[in-house]
Every structure is written in structure tokens, then in C-alpha cells.
Design a binder for these strands. Sequence first.
DNA 1: CAAACTAATTGATAAACATCAATTACAGTT
DNA 2: AACTGTAATTGATGTTTATCAATTAGTTTG
Lengths: 229, 229
Amino acid sequence: MPQKNFDEIRELDLFSKLKDESFSKLMRGAYFKQFPPQIELIDEGDSADFLHILTSGAVELFSRWENRETTLATVFPISTFILAATMTDLAYLMSARTLEKSQIILIPSEDVRAVFSEDRDFANAIVLELARCYRGVVRTTKNLKLRSASERLANHLLVLHKRMDRRNSLTLPYEKRRLASYLGMTAENLSRTFTLLAENGVEVHGKEVVISDLGKLEAFARPTSLIDG
Amino acid sequence: MPQKNFDEIRELDLFSKLKDESFSKLMRGAYFKQFPPQIELIDEGDSADFLHILTSGAVELFSRWENRETTLATVFPISTFILAATMTDLAYLMSARTLEKSQIILIPSEDVRAVFSEDRDFANAIVLELARCYRGVVRTTKNLKLRSASERLANHLLVLHKRMDRRNSLTLPYEKRRLASYLGMTAENLSRTFTLLAENGVEVHGKEVVISDLGKLEAFARPTSLIDG
DNA sequence: CAAACTAATTGATAAACATCAATTACAGTT
DNA sequence: AACTGTAATTGATGTTTATCAATTAGTTTG
């Protein structure tokens, strides 16, 4: 198992304050796997045997019901995913698939729970991470219930803009159909919503989005920290 | 502060395995307050100074954005609410109001965090509770994104039915307009959806709901444990 | 118990959004 | 560069859901 990746994940909020002993205990039982694109890593309903850490590539969390499917999140390096199922030893509620070739570290859930009980700093980090995830999903719910599709898109663009160091030009980090699913609309509707936003300070060329009039976009989106962070 | 309520909340999952010492530490700084109906307890954005425990009455968690409002949850005794904000020392993401006359115990967030660091069993309980809440909101998101309004109503009735000991007759524990808001639809649409469900084994008279044909309702709702628990 | 208020329902209409089909754009392969 | 498969867009249409207005039912209050 390459040392490089150990150093990387050691930096994660979840592990940074960990005793070396605890960290080794976690890594001792860990698998380090490489996956090609479009591999289904997790099928919702499976038992949560491993905590997953994505160190390179990209992973989509999604869910299916009655031949419908929706994207719940896109995970980029370096992040953990499905921590809650790991901690409660319950079935995964989301499925996961790689979007690109991805490197993933798999830590047995038992080990995570064991170190959680032994190491106070780890327990603290886990709670903060869980609370952060929880608050993220609460924001998502508010977004879905309080806003229309075009408002969700506008605000999402503002979030990306902020994340991209407030540059007025940005590249969508995923396919449009996945963005549409994430925002709770169809790809067709997303496309039409983009043309609507042309009158509100947004220009789109393929995956390139230019925010030509930030003021207009903000006036349309009316972002709030209580939804958009 | 009446002893009666201490005994009650001692039974909560969150406190049941707690050392007596830790429990007293939490209760030492706690306020015990009675509120009339329709009092706004929390305004989203406020700092999370207290963990709330509802011991009698009912509380609605809701959120507002741009003169729209949506119900996120209804809390019944005995439950805690807004644990995540308490643990992270961040602003509340939801507002809260009493629906009825309610008794609420307020524990200073600092005390909760202090006992969390000292008492391993409490830390465990907190993590399980947070994970449970998180998974609850993930289910909500899946419900909203994967199902139509009528499917959400049908499944919600099945959840209530199960909770009410599987009796074929049940009383809605909240007003219909709140149910509508919770399910992400208007009151008018809820009303029409109830008439639609008449052909699928459901009879409604005011707040009384009779499930006259469970098989039909289930065939329509297609419940799954991965959304409905 | 009537008055006054609020919630729930119903009908008519409009807006938002999805679906289906057809085309265009793009990316990867040979 | 032509071929192939997938993604994105566009147009036509249909469904779902919201809005507005009016009425009815149900609760609370004096």
C-alpha cells in the first residue's frame, strides 16, 4: 500500500488529530483498491461493512426506486462517504458508483467503531463530520422544498462560483444530466433553465459557464447562508 | 424542577446509559420551561445555545425562505431536537414553534459538549442519535426526489398505520395543512390527493383515516424500507 | 348558542415540470 | 478523418402541481 496515500488521508479532518496508534489500527485492516469508471461500489440495502475514502477520481451517490433514479451527491477527493451507516452498523441508504477511474480506501466498519470508542479525538472528529453531513442534507431538503428548479440552478451556480475562488468563469465538474438529477429536474428542463438564466447574467458554452453579471444572478437566486452555506 | 420529568428523560436513548454524575452535570444548568401554543422557540440563524428536549406538547420544525415556508418535521414527546447545531456550535438551520402548550427542557450546549468529551457512553449515544437523524433526512430527500405527491401521501399513511399498531383506523396527529407542507405539497393538492386515494383503499373523514383495503394501498404506495424505514 | 375566525374543500385556471421524439453536438475509437 | 455511441438540445405535447377565488366545515370565543 503506497505511503503517499496514507499521508494524504492523514490530513483529513477526520484523522488529523488522531493518535498514531489509532491511525495504524485503522490502516492495518484497510484495503486499498483501484476501480475503473462506472463501477457500482455500493448497492443501497447492503450492510455497511466498510467506511470508504476516495483518494482520487470521483464517485456518485445515488438512489433508485421503482425504475427511477436520483443523484444525491457527487464525492470528490479527498473525502469519506457513508459514515453514518458505518457507525450505526445499518444498511446503506445510498448506492455509489465510480464516475471515473478511482482509488478508494476501505476501512472495516468494526475498526472504525473500535477506534471511535478508544480515541476521544477520533470520537470528536466523527461527531463533527456526522453533524456536518446532517446539516448538509437539511440544506438540501430546504432547497428542494422552498425553491423552484430555476432557483436551485441559479444558487448552485453561485455555490460553484464561490468554490472556484469567485472567478467569473467556471467549468461544470460533472455531466449536465447528473447536475439535473442532483438538482431534482430532468436534463431537458435543465437545458431550458440555462437558456432562461441567459437573461439573468449567465452564459453557457458546453461545460463552460460564464457569470457575466453576478449582480443579476444574485438578484435572481437570492442566496442565503441557511441553505447555501 | 419536578423530579417526574427528570425520570422521564433519563429513559431517553441519549441519556439511558449515562453515568449519574454526567446526568446531573447536564441537569444542573438546565432550564425547565412551559410554553403556550404557537410560540416561536427558535429562529433559524440563531446560535445554538441550548439542546432542546420536548417532554410534553408538540413542536414543529420548519424553515422559511423568501416568504415561503415549509414544515421539516413535527416533534412529539419525548424527543430532543436540534442536536447537530448544538454539537457543532453553529447556527440553527431550522426554526421551531410550539403547536400546543409544551414543556421543554433546555440544556446549555456547552454542557452537552463538555459531557460528550468526558463520558464515553454519552459520546456513543450522541453519535448514534446524530446518525439516526442524518439517515432520517436522507430518507426524506429520497422520498421528495423519487416519488410524486400522491405516492408520498400513500406511503406516509402506511408509516402512520404501522406506528399505530397496524390498526386500520387512525387519527392524523396534525392539521392537514401541516401534513401537506411536510409532504411538500399545498393543502389544496393534499385534499385532492386524498380523494384520489379513495380508489386505493383509503377513506377520510376529517382527521380520521380508515385504511379499508391495505393491499390496494400498499400496491399503490410500493413502500420500501430504504425510504420508509 | 351565535359570532367570528380558521381550516378544509372544491372548482377554474395557470404555471411548472416531465415526457416523447427528433435532431445536433460531442467524445472516443479505428 | 469517418464511424459510433452517448450527451445535450429543441420542439411539441401532456401531466402534475400551484394559485386564486369561493364555499363549506369545524373551532374558538364572547
